[in-house]
Simulated scan of single mutants.
Amino acid sequence: MTLLEAHNLPFAGAAILLVFIALAQVIGMGDIFEGADADIDLDVDYELADPTAASGFGAALLSVFGIGRVPFLIWLSVLLFAFTVIGWFGQQTLVSAVGAPLPAWLAAIAAGAAALPVTGMLTRPLARLLPQDETSAVGLDSLVRRDAEIQMGSATAGSPARSKVIDRHGHPHFVMVEPNDPEATLEQGETVMLVRREGETFFGVQYENPMLSL
């Protein structure tokens, strides 16, 4: 029984997509996926790192499925591989045992449900093998609720100033910051807390960080 039979078409499609992803990486077309990789992986990584960003059940579910442990493209490749193998093997087993496979749509649902936890199991050792810098990048939203130092000029409503903020990995980022209070002015050298983001502009509030007085 091959992947090209009608009841195996979902698994054939997954295998073709997996081959396409591999070829795209080899011939340098990986940038096609780069934006999705960064947005999905980094946002999920932030949710797992920040207990206030996701509910306990949601964070536990993401962890079981392995989401956020490795870059999204690797996670997707593992999922496609697990889905293909589980689905094809399951159909072959049914044909041997009862003489007929499941309909393609039902087999796809069953294989997908089984592939998710299997993917979670497989990504755990992969996460330990990957270099740390593979997951050290952060999404812009993860900079919210962090301190930023006004670097150049004064920031007023509608006139942001260049500021430096350190992410959770200790890496500096230079962003444009306006005061969250339209009547306030943020002076050069002042440290503010970033409270929200609109596009590329962050909004900060003045406060006294107790760590700065130590």
Rank of each mutant, 00 (worst) to 15 (best):
Arg162Thr: 08
Ser163Phe: 06
Ala161Gly: 02
Gly66His: 04
Ser63Trp: 05
Gln188Trp: 13
Asp141Arg: 12
Val98Asn: 00
Arg146Pro: 04
Thr123Phe: 04
Asp50Val: 08
Ala59Asn: 06
Ile166Cys: 07
Met211Gly: 04
Gln188Phe: 06
Pro131Leu: 07
Ser154Leu: 14
Thr119Pro: 03
Val118Tyr: 08
Gly68Thr: 13
Leu4Trp: 05
Val98Thr: 13
Val19Cys: 14
Leu23Gln: 14
Ser77Met: 13
Phe89Asp: 14
Trp105Ser: 13
Thr2Asp: 08
Asp37Phe: 10
Val165Gln: 04
Gly90His: 14
Gln132Tyr: 09
Val138Thr: 00
Leu102His: 07
Gly139Lys: 09
Leu212Gln: 01
Ile166Asn: 03
Val205Trp: 11
Thr119Glu: 00
Ala38Val: 14
Pro210Glu: 14
Ile109Asp: 13
Thr185Leu: 07
Val175Asn: 09
Leu42Ser: 10
Ala157Leu: 09
Ala49Gln: 01
Leu194Asp: 04
Ala161Asp: 10
Ala110Gly: 14
Trp88Phe: 11
His7Asp: 08
Gly28Arg: 11
Ile32Asp: 03
Pro71Gly: 13
Val26Lys: 14
Glu190Val: 11
Tyr46Asn: 07
Pro10Val: 09
Pro10Phe: 10
Gly56Leu: 15
Leu79Phe: 15
Val95Thr: 03
Leu42Ala: 05
Asp45Val: 12
Gly30Ser: 12
Glu198Phe: 15
Gly139Phe: 02
Gly199Met: 12
Val205Asn: 02
Phe83Asp: 03
Leu212Ser: 01
Gly139Asn: 12
Pro179Arg: 05
Gln132Leu: 12
Phe11Trp: 12
Phe20Gln: 07
Val177Thr: 08
Ser63Gly: 12
Ala100Ile: 13
Thr156Tyr: 09
Phe57Arg: 12
Ala36Cys: 09
Ile21Gly: 00
Ile27Ser: 07
Ala12Arg: 00
Ala108Trp: 09
Asp31Arg: 07
Gln91Phe: 05
Glu5Gln: 14
Pro172Met: 01
Leu102Met: 02
Ser142Ala: 14
Ile166Glu: 03
Leu48Ala: 05
Glu5Asp: 11
Ala38Leu: 10
Ile86Trp: 02
Arg197Asp: 09
Ser213Ile: 09
Leu42Asp: 09
Ser213Met: 13
Leu140Val: 09
Leu17Cys: 11
Ala53Gln: 04
Ser136His: 04
Ala108Tyr: 06
Phe11Leu: 06
Thr93Ala: 15
Gly56Ser: 14
Ile27Leu: 11
Ile150Lys: 06
Leu76Tyr: 01
Leu80Tyr: 06
Gly87Asp: 00
Asp50Thr: 13
Ala54Gly: 10
